[in-house]
Design a protein around this nucleic acid. Structure first.
Lengths: 148, 148
DNA sequence: ATTTAGTCTATAAATTCTATAGACTAAATA
DNA sequence: TATTTAGTCTATAGAATTTATAGACTAAAT
């Protein structure tokens, strides 16, 4: 399961993507917008900042904003920071490999084999889904004709 | 993350698949084979039995065995019983749909969109991975030439 | 100086995961 | 039919993780 932490983080970051270029957004605004406990969200944004996905500005006129363009930040990156590896078992993680405690022999582990496939498919999707891309799919440009 | 429950359950069930047709296997044997706490494994197997994946026989010469052929039981079925839906958020589950508590509008939820893709990819893999198939991949027939 | 708003540490409440204990029931067989 | 074997069921406990909340502190703006 995706934790609330990741869910909240993603919601916030998607808003920051919408607002990109218009200056910092208040934690309070982000929290209100999606009814996220403010203090919890603060911790989440801080973690994203520490990992380089966000930047912030203190004091009046402060708030959070994306470190990179919305088209250069993926859902996979956000989830990895907040929930850890995408892989369902540590021994198939690309970014945080670990031997499973109880594992006898990785080469003959069927579970590992199946989970590897799942991890790869998941990573392929989430590492190619950018904030910009996602927002575009969900908030399509109004009526009007498509730009040429 | 896959819980130990699912991991243990899958390991047990893969052994039962190997032993299929040779009569019931003792819980103790399954537990020993993979160093699984016996009482915990009992609970797991019972749950799989309740969901119709396993059958059991009490008394001397008893034990557990698969309800169907190893080629007719999938990893997806086992995981759903033990860990619940494959979907990372309830609103994209096919087998156990639920509205997300904090969700405003599903149609404009980017997270849902991304998670739907992941669920579908995961289900496609796990619902097509049978116990027989997995065992075959991992314990390939010895030397000898391939049957014609 | 004052107000605004993010930073950091600590801790608490709730939930879920992992495991264990023990009494009970069904089946086999001697 | 008594005994042994092995699964069934209920209850509960310990550990870990998730989900927050409180409060003191720091940087920036005016």
């Amino acid at each position: 399961m995706l934790t609330k932490k990741s869910k909240y983080g993603l919601k916030a970051v998607l808003v920051l993507a919408e607002e990109a270029g218009r200056g910092p957004v208040l934690v309070s605004d982000l929290a209100d917008r999606h009814r996220i406990p403010k203090k919890f969200l603060e911790a989440i944004l801080l973690e994203l900042k520490r990992h380089g996905l966000l930047q912030s500005k203190k004091g009046k006129g402060g708030g959070y904003f994306l470190s990179r363009k919305p088209s250069e930040i993926t859902v996979g990156q956000v989830i990895r920071v907040l929930d850890g590896p995408l892989a369902l078992i540590p021994c198939v993680s690309q970014t945080a490999y670990m031997k499973c405690e109880e594992c006898g022999d990785e080469k003959t582990c069927g579970i590992r084999l199946a989970m590897k496939e799942v991890r790869d498919a998941t990573a392929k999707i989430l590492d190619n889904t950018t904030l910009a891309g996602l927002n575009a799919k969900v908030h399509p440009p109004r009526k009007g004709r498509r730009r040429i």
